[in-house]
Amino acid sequence: MRRIPTILRLAALGILLAFLLAPERFAALFAPLASAGASPIYDQGNIGRLALAHLLTVLIGCLASTVVAVALGVLVTRARGAEFLPLSRAVVSFGQTFPPVAVLALAVPLVGFGAKPTLIALFLYGLLPIFENTVVGLRTCPAAVLEAASGMGMSARQRLVTVELPLAMPLILEGIRLSLVINIGTATLGSTVAAKGLGEVIIAGLLSNNTAFVLQGGLATGLMAVLLYDGVAALERRICGSARID
């Protein structure tokens, strides 16, 4: 029975790739939704390239979020950095609650149109889940294990790298996964400031009142999010599966 989800995932991946590589083959499927006389399939650019650019933007944004959020999480769980916890938490939460659209609007005058404002918005938006999970992961390391690590003669750094981070890794990866999935959706907004991405397809549909375009952009984005979520989950199991942490 465990095979069925795998088959579904592979099918979803197959459909997504088929659509991105040769979208015109799906013309018949989307024809009923297209406005009269308009093309049923997005024709103002290569949809496969847009998807790739979309994915790349999200990955770069997430990488930046991960580096900063994990570093911050480590800092505030050290004795010396504990006093920064409330401040860091406030900043990171602000990044999450400040609407990405507003970030874009504010960033464009500073860095111009294109991918840059989008990356800033994604970076801010992705911090919170990774930061919070890092803090919880590091804080919930069993006290006896930490005491043993110090008692064995590990330096603070050795303890962090060889004990605390590996034990917190499942939670950190979960934060990264959450952040990735949220940002796949959020990145569509980037197209309003001329970043390359699947948002372009959706916006083109809205402007020309062509539901087929909107649906194509939306479905491609959604499938990407689902597949990425599962992909990272599988990665997590590979990394953390060898040792059950309890």
Partner: peptide, 17 residues
């Protein structure tokens, strides 16, 4: 110093990973 001194604690504190 601690590397030269053995240390055993209650609940052993083995590294679970």
């Amino acid at each position: 110093l601690r590397r030269r001194i053995g240390y055993v604690i209650q609940g052993h504190g083995l590294f679970p990973h």
